[in-house]
């Protein structure tokens, strides 16, 4: 089916209406359309953000309200540095949303296991919020978060809010900590085994660095979660976001349009092939 989008290659004008530094190199921006309404979107999708004259970068949607998208941007390259440096009132170009979504609706009635690593909490956050807003539609809700150090943990306020929310089992593990840290230390995969959920009636959504997702998927598999009930959010070089430039290919998939959210059973074999 061909999508009737005015011109998916042409950015729309957005304005930065809120900017917050989350970590040393990571900011959160709220982007409000300058012309017209916010397009419809789903948790898991991404936008292409354009810094004037510098270039474009694919950034997942980490939240939205009626006024705009929230994007969490880590300054790692020329484009993301330029985007992360934007101030309230600045203009930015935005194309999107693009890509596949987390199976938030499909998971209704099941236990939901979220596993986030590092910045991977950002793309999962709208899915977590969506599940918590309709908490009664789901079974047990488990969130496992991995981070490098306690001070690198993303969205601590949101985590606290979710922790206080009804019936959510949240646990955080960091790779290194000093003795002040009261939480877990160790890789996040080790927190999956101890979580209480029915592996046969669960949907798992995993987002984080490639290696972390691979090992989390295996841990979930070992716990008895079927591979077709595990979802990962893949990262490749998204340039056009509409499947025409070829850069984001991962075997037969274009991550920009077939992903980024992909079912583990459809990609498990490919994940083990080097340099694919």
């Amino acid at each position: 089916m061909t999508v009737a989008v005015a011109d998916p290659m042409l950015p729309q004008r957005y304005r930065v209406t809120h900017a917050q530094r989350l970590l040393d190199d990571t900011v959160s921006l709220r982007l409000t359309p300058q012309d017209g309404e916010l397009p419809s979107w789903q948790p898991g999708q991404f936008n292409m953000l354009y810094a004037f004259g510098v270039g474009e970068s694919a950034i997942s949607i980490s939240g939205a309200d009626d006024n705009g998208f929230e994007h969490t941007v880590r300054a790692v390259g020329a484009v993301s540095r330029a985007i992360a440096a934007l101030q309230v009132g600045d203009s930015i170009g935005l194309r999107g949303p693009f890509g596949s979504a987390w199976p938030v609706t499909a998971a209704e009635g099941a236990d939901v296991v979220f596993v986030a690593g590092g910045l991977g909490l950002a793309p999962l956050r709208p899915a977590i919020e969506a599940v918590l807003q309709q908490r009664e539609r789901y079974g047990r809700v488990v969130l496992r978060v991995g981070a490098r150090r306690p001070q690198d943990l993303l969205f601590p306020e949101a985590l606290e809010r979710w922790r206080l929310a009804r019936d959510v089992d949240i646990d955080v593990s960091v790779d290194h900590a000093d003795t002040q840290w009261r939480g877990h230390v160790g890789v996040v995969t080790t927190l999956i085994a101890g979580a209480r959920f029915d592996p046969h009636e669960s949907i798992a959504m995993v987002c984080g660095p490639d290696v972390m997702m691979r090992f989390c998927a295996r841990s979930l598999h070992d716990e008895g979660v079927a591979d077709d009930r595990i979802y990962l959010s893949m990262e490749r070089n998204m340039k056009c976001a509409i499947g025409l430039c070829g850069h984001c290919q991962f075997g037969p998939s274009f991550i920009c349009k077939d992903g980024p959210v992909m079912r583990y059973d459809t990609i498990a074999d490919r994940l083990n092939v080097r340099e694919l």
Binding site: V76, G77, S80, E235, R236, N237, G246, H247, Q249, G251, P252, R274, E275, L276
Partner: peptide, 27 residues
Amino acid sequence: FSYIHGGSVRQSTGARYRQWMTHKLSS
């Protein structure tokens, strides 16, 4: 071509040739 932050996915020539031919004839 396959650059993601930090490095290219397909570093070796073999991987790049494989991508080209496998895309063309298979995927």
